[in-house]
Amino acid sequence: MHSTEHDWITTPLTADLVRGTLELEHTAHGVLPHRLPARARAQCADGQLAMAEAQPSGVRLAFRTRATAVELDTLPTKREYAGAPPRPDGVYDLLVDGRLAGQGSVVGGNTLTIDMATGTVESRPGPVGTLRFTGMTEGTKHVEIWLPHNETTELVALRTDAPVEPAPDGHRRVWLHHGSSISHGSDAASPTTTWPALAAALGGVELINLGLSGSALLDPFTARALRDTPADLISVKIGINVVNTDLMRLRAFAPAVHGFLDTVREGHPDAPLLVVSPILCPIHEDTPGPSVPDFSALSAGRLRFRAVGDPAERAGGKLTLRVIRDELARVVGERRAGDPNLHYLDGRALYGEADTAELPLPDQLHPDAATHRRIGERFAELALAAGGPLAGPDS
């Protein structure tokens, strides 16, 4: 499988080499990073959640080494959509001493063929592939390999041409974030350019990204995962999935938010905790969910979404993004005013009216790569920089 021009050293893929994951599952091939623990996964049979939490957004190998060459064997699981052109292979980002030093992909792997019209999924097995980076700088350095944020990745073997040791934890604060597909990184260019990864780099914090595509639904097991994960600062981005799945009505929403925050606070009673409402999404500002795929341009590789709820149903408690922002602001600002470390950020400060005119959401729901950068830069400025609700004590 691997090349022979180096004297390779194989290093076991253990938890002390992997950052940004809550659990490593031992598989027939190696280890599979999970972003929810087994107890949480056992409490929900939803296929979308299972796929999202096993996609390693924010997960990276981190080690110190003098190596100039590294190989990583992985077994990816690719997704195909019936009737659509093939998706590009997932991107791996190589960082050396914090700077992008290479990118690559792994071909082969398993394939999931998803028919969005019928909801059926067909699985086809495939081979392990190899990612290779050579020509790295001489001398001891901090190396990170960020796994594709949108491609399930089993880690099979790590080889280098010099010994590897786990990267020291350092003194960076740990930022634990939960959100929807936008936080997961949908349509970002690479794993280090999702908006949370960009914000973490700009803010000098260590990211654990629990952005779960289609699955930021105030699930109690997700709140418990946040509660039980060590962190110095926490943010939860709530709203769009609750609307576009048409999951609950207004009567249930605020108590669910309170319960979610109560659970997080059980494990982090005093940590800075930021509640972020949805960014601007024109199709759902005043129209309830659900949102459904528009297949009319799928054969050309374009998928768009549309909202099919009836605005008149707001009177009966159906949720829209405006309703959710008002309710979140009320929960944080009035009903939980006794929590001095709880803060609120209107998501339209990250992406609002002027932004949607300049950088519209291509599929009506998800930002493109340029918009991820803008959101990440704004979050770093508004939340992580000096004076922000998640800023460090010395900033």
Rank of each mutant, 00 (worst) to 15 (best):
D169S: 13
H184C: 09
A200H: 02
L147N: 00
E144R: 09
I208H: 08
G170N: 09
H171P: 02
D169M: 04
S180F: 06
G214R: 11
T193R: 15
A162H: 10
S215C: 14
A201P: 06
H184F: 12
S186F: 14
T134L: 11
G179F: 00
A167D: 11
A216E: 15
P168W: 01
V156P: 04
H142Y: 05
A162W: 08
R132N: 09
S190H: 09
S180A: 11
A162D: 09
G185N: 10
A197Q: 05
A200K: 04
R172Q: 13
V156M: 06
L212N: 04
H184T: 04
E151A: 08
A162E: 12
V205E: 09
T153S: 09
H178N: 11
P163I: 01
D169F: 02
F133Y: 12
V205C: 13
V156T: 05
L212S: 01
S181M: 07
A197D: 01
W175C: 04
A216G: 06
A162S: 14
P168V: 00
P168H: 05
D219M: 05
T160P: 01
A201L: 14
V143P: 05
V205N: 10
S183G: 10
H184N: 07
A188P: 07
A199N: 08
G214F: 14
L198A: 09
L147M: 07
G203C: 07
D161N: 14
W175G: 03
E165Q: 15
G204L: 06
R132V: 09
A197Y: 00
V156Q: 05
G211Y: 01
D187S: 13
T152F: 01
L198Y: 02
T153C: 13
E151P: 00
L212M: 11
V174K: 13
L210I: 08
A200W: 03
D169C: 03
E154H: 04
A189S: 14
A189P: 00
E138A: 15
R173V: 02
E165N: 01
K141M: 07
D161A: 00
L176N: 01
A167P: 03
S181C: 11
G211C: 03
E154C: 08
H171D: 11
S190V: 06
W195T: 05
G211L: 06
H142I: 04
A162T: 00
T134V: 15
L210R: 07
L218W: 05
L212R: 03
G214Y: 11
P163V: 01
L131V: 05
G203W: 03
W195A: 07
G214N: 10
T134E: 15
D187P: 01
V143N: 06
D219E: 12
L147W: 07
R173K: 11
N150F: 14
D187K: 15
E165R: 15
R132C: 13
E151V: 14
I145Q: 07
